[in-house]
């Protein structure tokens, strides 16, 4: 059992017999009442994100989620098809709504973490830092560089991100998958 004070991002827990991942935690102490933990939780089986507030001192069960490496193959309609990285003959597919936001960072042959619950891969997660090539970057206007302006570039996975003006098509960028933000240029 873990208590509400242990709540942190990426923790897995069981609530109403469902496995959930903690997406966000905020400690709120109203001063005139006990402290609370306000969270956003993602249901790993349905992809639903809900807001829930825990009292301080509340206890719950941690979900036993193991990670296994998986490879993304392709998407067809709204199904996403993966194989186990160490055993390509084991395929599994997940609907788009279960994966949620992360789909926009998936490219074929990308290695991701498969989340195993009772021997079944129920969802995937991506590292916070991922590296993606720029598929399309509009030409930046030179004079703007000193101002530190940004422009919208499209990544190979189809996601768009705000990047500095010096970024060109073909550059590899480090992206933070939690915030969806550009971190830095890795190579030209």
């Amino acid at each position: 059992m873990i208590s509400s004070a242990d709540l942190k991002k990426d923790l897995y827990l069981i609530m109403d017999s469902q496995p959930w991942m903690v997406v966000e935690v905020q400690f709120v102490s109203p001063g005139k009442g006990s402290a609370f933990y306000r969270t956003k939780l993602k249901n790993l089986k349905s992809g639903n994100v809900v807001e829930k507030t825990f009292k301080s001192g509340e206890h719950f069960e941690e979900a036993n989620i193991e990670k296994t490496k998986a490879k993304f193959l392709y998407s067809h309609r709204d199904k996403y098809v993966f194989t186990k990285a160490d055993n390509p003959s084991v395929r599994f597919e997940l609907p788009q709504e279960i994966i949620g936001n992360l789909i926009k960072y998936l490219t074929p042959n990308q290695i991701v973490d498969g989340l195993l619950s009772n021997g079944e891969i129920i969802n995937i997660s991506l590292p916070i830092k991922i590296y993606l090539k720029v598929k399309d970057a509009p030409i930046g206007i030179k004079g703007d560089r000193a101002q530190g302006g940004t422009k919208t570039v499209t990544l190979e996975s189809g996601a768009t991100v705000e990047a500095p003006l010096f970024i060109e098509t073909g550059d590899t960028l480090e992206i933070n998958t939690e915030t969806g933000e550009y971190v830095r240029r890795v190579e030209k």
Partner: peptide, 15 residues
């Protein structure tokens, strides 16, 4: 629900 009136108050208020 709680045995403390103020905690019920804040559960409702915050949620």
């Amino acid at each position: 629900l709680s045995s403390d009136w103020n905690n019920i108050f804040y559960s409702v208020f915050l949620n």
